[in-house]
């Protein structure tokens, strides 16, 4: 069996007295869509932040493509092929959609410590950006200001920005957040399309989307993975049912 693309080993993080990540193990295999589910407060956000290098773990290791990246700053992880989208849309609202993507393209095409030549003269950046947009069916809005797009298109751009980094692993943090049913369907279609090209680790609350897209599902409860496996196995797992049932009962109370 091949080595996992991303491997998290015995990861531990606490804030004051609260343990957010509790000796967590996780392995994401190349070419899969791996979904991370779990009740609120299970530590999904903290885990993502540690994988991306925004929060330093107290102990444990994170390996990417066989390399220990635990101490690597966030930007260096991106350069290795770890792209991400945010739960809260983080696009460059005042720039055009094309310039948004061009900025991502620029990051992986040579040094940006260049002070003289106008960026507008670099046709290759704009061309690459247009290619990415065409692929995602966003070519029509290339010239619009990103902030003026409707919500669903902003979410799409959010994913496009991550994709334009040409990641080996794409981290999607709640890609369906705040979407209506119709837009959600379109986003699910998009992710299914991306699935052909890149490995995906996805946090998502929409179970319908998770079971349609995921090859592997890991269930996070109390900062640790309590179950991991194929969708059907997870659906039938009694412990998972208990964990979720528990949450529903609390929600009902």
């Amino acid at each position: 069996m091949a080595d996992p693309l991303l491997e998290v080993r015995r990861l531990f993080k606490h804030f004051g007295g609260v343990v957010a990540t509790d000796r967590l193990d996780l392995a994401v295999l190349e070419g899969r869509v791996h979904a991370l589910i779990g009740p609120n407060g299970a530590g999904k956000t903290t885990l993502i932040a540690q994988i991306c290098g925004e929060i330093a773990p107290d102990s444990g290791q994170i390996l990417f493509a066989g390399r220990d990246i635990t101490k690597l700053p966030g930007h260096a992880r991106v350069a290795l092929g770890l792209g991400r989208s945010f739960q809260i849309t983080r696009i460059f609202r005042s720039l055009t959609v094309r310039d948004n993507i061009a900025l991502a393209v620029q990051a992986r095409s040579g040094s940006s410590m260049r002070f003289w030549r106008p960026v507008a003269a670099e046709r290759a950046l704009a061309d690459d950006a247009d290619a990415v947009l065409a692929e995602l069916g966003m070519a029509a809005s290339a010239g619009l200001a990103a902030g003026s797009l409707p919500h669903a298109d902003q979410r799409r751009l959010e994913v496009a920005l991550a994709l334009a980094c040409r990641p080996r692993l794409l981290l999607l943090d709640e890609p369906l957040a705040g979407m209506g049913a119709e837009d959600a369907q379109a986003m699910i279609g998009l992710i299914a399309q991306l699935k052909q090209r890149t490995t995906i680790l996805m946090v998502e609350h929409d179970m319908n989307a998770v079971f349609r897209l995921a090859d592997v599902i890991s269930v996070l409860v109390g900062g640790a993975v309590i179950a991991s496996g194929a969708p059907q196995a997870i659906r039938d797992d009694p412990e998972v049912r208990r964990a979720y049932l528990g949450e529903e009962e609390t929600a009902a109370a």
């Binding site: 991106v78 620029q106 002070f115 960026v119 920005l161």
Partner: peptide
């Protein structure tokens, strides 16, 4: 010149959304 260059573009990106710039690898 600087404002219109690659460097200036990166500065603008950072000013507008630094977390995203980090996530793009800057």
């Amino acid at each position: 010149r600087l404002a219109a260059s690659r460097f200036g573009t990166v500065l603008r990106g950072i000013r507008e959304n630094e977390a995203r710039m980090t996530a793009l690898g800057y």
